[in-house]
Design a protein around this nucleic acid. Structure first.
Length: 646
RNA sequence: GCCGGCGUAGCUCAAUCGGUAGAGCGGCGCAUUCGUAAUGCGUAGGUUAGCGGUUCAAGUCCGCUCGCCGGCUCCA
């Protein structure tokens, strides 16, 4: 009996029944057999040692492929668990998957692991790798598995087993370590070459804060030592562009012990803020938005009517004025709604786009605060669009384009889109949620944008499209969001007078582009590693006189540039040129203008760019024009480089 | 909020076993007047996060509180 094996290149070979992918790989090339970790057999990932008993399409998976690396990492998690069990026989196993840049495994142990424990565990793993234990695999009926894992005291595995539907479950074993696992795995522990345990952290069983806190060990593994080293080095570099560190070094912002989660913006940070705000205002004016401002404190009754009292109270701060209850706004929508309601609205006025840089306060759990990324008060670049039902698609499309222009067009940021659907604690009937969710889905799909569905993560009043940006460590932060809302108009009895002279119900969009100015600035700091494009840089150019005699000329140059709204200062300190340049470099100032005898005589400046270095001398006026253009065009690149110094 | 770690001068960090709190940078002063990433000398700067305890003696050991860091949960 033979089976026909089709390889990815289309060639077909015959093998005896029961052949394994491992043997096929050897047959193709020894090199392939060496790199192989698993196989895809007719579309399903399998172990190399699994028998193939029917005609199949077989693809050998190596560690160089994404799936191969994932399998390697998953196996690394098992090897780590084996090491933990050897050192801590009473540890109970939870789950241990491969994740984006590595793997983790959760354990229930009486005492938390220390960094020294991690070293011991890692050393034990190396022994296991050295022992080159084979991964074996078999199936078991679920009841037997429940009994066996119960006997071992693996209560978490038992809980998982009890929730499974299948009659048969899959078990893996290497050495003395047995685990419930779908697989596949690498053939033996010796295949794991480059790995490292990174850190320990608490993690709730099944992500539920009411269940036990487990100990999670994170680690990473790569195909080669070189890849691992590169990854570790990248982590170090990332730490250098952490916005909290740069925020301190560049004197942009701070968070004081007196106000955890309430950031202070320093003069330098405020320049960036203001530049973004000017940009924001200009772009909104062009797109038919009208700017408004609504109060920070409003009556509690308003928040009861909006539904915030029922669905958002935990995150709100309350106060009292003249004996009556008030709330500090966690969102801007109720305020905008009051503005809408101040007069009768006509269909002719819709869509009505109110935008507001609104300062909101939210009580976030102390453990979640993170620099500017996660704070307790922040400025949303909010807008509320009141519109006819027939305008929904166009308005959503307009906001999507707006966000794409800002993220990709202006800042060169990559982003990910998520469709967040009805949460458990939601207002309103399912039909309305479905209609709103469909409208959002149609809009992204019409744009041909890839997106993921984030089940149950919508706002309490409507589903949303979320736009996520990455920080220096690849953690993603929700920034932009577009929320479609049929419910607030209902609760506040919003109306417009239609063509027919009768009252109708408008629909609302809540949306932000930056999200929160604070978070967006955090993202930008990390994206640019503090070296902001000229249009955002706190100081755009610094004039550096080579000696005291040239301070007057330097000040003259500064005056000319200041007159054109450029941000320029002069380093008048009694120091050598090298010292002043070094200090300007460390402040990441885009341009340094060195002036001395030659420049005074010729009416020029000698230009140095922070990255490109010495660019030679050009007339002050020419520098002014070029920098002005660079700033006005919001260029991410220096226009002066290659512009030709004389 | 939960689990763990951490908290020393403005910043980055040192201080052996529990035995007199130190350095560099930065600040200030003086000298120097300098041409593309650090001139030299001098000098000030501390309730070792806060409160309590153990001890002859606490930066160091113990407890509590606050804050920060890494995760979990949650979110812009």
């Amino acid at each position: 009996m033979t089976v026909k094996i089709t390889l990815p290149d289309g060639s077909v070979k015959e093998y005896p029944r029961g052949i394994t992918a491992a043997k096929i790989a050897e047959d193709i090339s020894p090199r392939l057999a060496k790199d192989a970790v698993a196989a895809r057999v007719s579309g399903v990932l399998k172990n190399l040692k699994d028998e193939i008993n029917e005609d199949s399409l077989v693809e050998i998976i190596t560690v160089d492929q994404p799936e191969g690396l994932e399998i390697l990492r998953h196996s690394a998690a098992h090897i780590m668990a084996e090491a933990v069990k050897r050192l801590y026989p009473d540890a109970k196993l939870a789950i241990g998957p491969a994740i984006e840049n590595g793997f983790y495994y959760d354990f229930d142990v009486p005492e938390a692991f220390s960094p020294e424990d991690l070293e011991r565990i890692e050393a034990e793993m190396r022994k296991i790798v050295e022992e080159d234990q084979e991964f074996s695999h078999w199936e078991l009926d679920r009841e037997t598995a429940v009994n066996e894992f119960s006997a071992m005291g693996e209560v978490y595995k038992v809980e998982l087993l009890r929730e499974m539907e299948d009659g048969q479950v899959s078990i893996y074993k290497q050495g003395d370590f047995v685990d419930l696992c779908r697989g596949p795995h690498i053939p033996s522990t010796g295949k794991l070459k480059a790995f490292k345990l990174l850190n320990v952290a608490g993690a709730y069983w099944r992500g539920d804060s009411n269940r036990p806190m487990l100990q999670r060990i994170y680690g990473t593994a790569f195909a080669k030592k070189k890849d691992l080293d590169e990854y570790l080095q990248r982590l170090e570099e990332a730490a250098r562009r952490d916005h909290r560190r740069l925020g301190k070094e560049l004197d942009l912002f701070s968070i004081q012990d007196e106000g955890p989660g309430f950031p202070f913006l320093h003069p330098n940070g405020m320049v960036i803020w203001r530049s973004l705000e000017d940009f924001w205002r200009r772009e909104h004016r062009r797109r038919g938005y009208q700017e408004v401002k609504t109060p920070m404190i409003l009556s509690e009754s308003l928040w009861r009517r909006s539904g915030h009292w029922d669905h958002y109270r935990e995150n709100m701060y309350f106060t009292e004025i003249d004996g009556r209850p008030y709330a500090i706004k966690p969102m801007n929508c109720p305020g905008s709604i009051l503005l809408y309601k101040r007069r009768l609205q006509s269909y002719r006025d819709l869509p009505l786009r109110y935008c507001e840089l609104g300062l909101v306060h939210r009580h976030e759990l102390s453990g979640t605060l993170h620099g500017l990324m996660r704070v307790r008060c922040f400025h949303q670049d909010d807008a509320h669009i009141f519109m006819l039902p027939s305008q929904i698609q166009d308005e959503i499309a307009g906001v999507i384009d707006f966000i794409d222009y800002v993220y990709r067009g202006v800042f060169g940021l990559n982003y990910r889109v998520e469709l967040s659907t009805k949460p458990e604690d939601a207002m309103g009937p399912d039909e309305i949620w479905e209609a709103a969710t469909d409208a959002l889905r149609n809009a992204v799909e019409a744009k041909g944008m890839p997106y993921e569905v984030n089940e149950g993560d919508g706002a309490f009043y409507g589903p949303k499209l979320d736009f996520h940006l990455e920080d220096c460590l690849g953690r993603t932060w929700q920034c932009g969001t577009i929320q479609l809302d049929f419910l607030m108009p209902e609760r506040f009895d919003l109306t417009y007078v239609g063509e027919d002279g009768k009252e109708h119900r408008p629909v609302m969009i809540h949306r932000v582009i930056f999200g929160a100015l604070e978070r967006f600035i955090g993202i930008l700091i990390e994206e640019f590693a503090g070296a902001f494009p000229a249009w955002l840089a706190p100081v755009q150019a610094r004039v550096i006189p080579v000696g005291e005699r040239f301070v007057d000329y330097a000040t003259e140059v500064q005056k000319q540039l200041l007159a054109d709204d450029l941000r320029v200062d002069v380093d008048v300190r009694d120091e050598k040129v090298g010292y002043k340049i070094r200090s300007a470099q460390l402040e990441k100032i885009p341009y340094m203008l060195i002036v001395g005898e030659k420049e005074v005589e010729a009416g020029t400046v000698s230009v140095r760019h922070r990255q490109a270095g010495d660019l030679g001398s050009i007339p002050v006026e020419k520098f002014r024009k070029l920098l002005r253009e660079e700033v006005a065009s919001m260029s991410l690149k220096p226009l002066l480089v290659g512009a030709g110094a004389d």
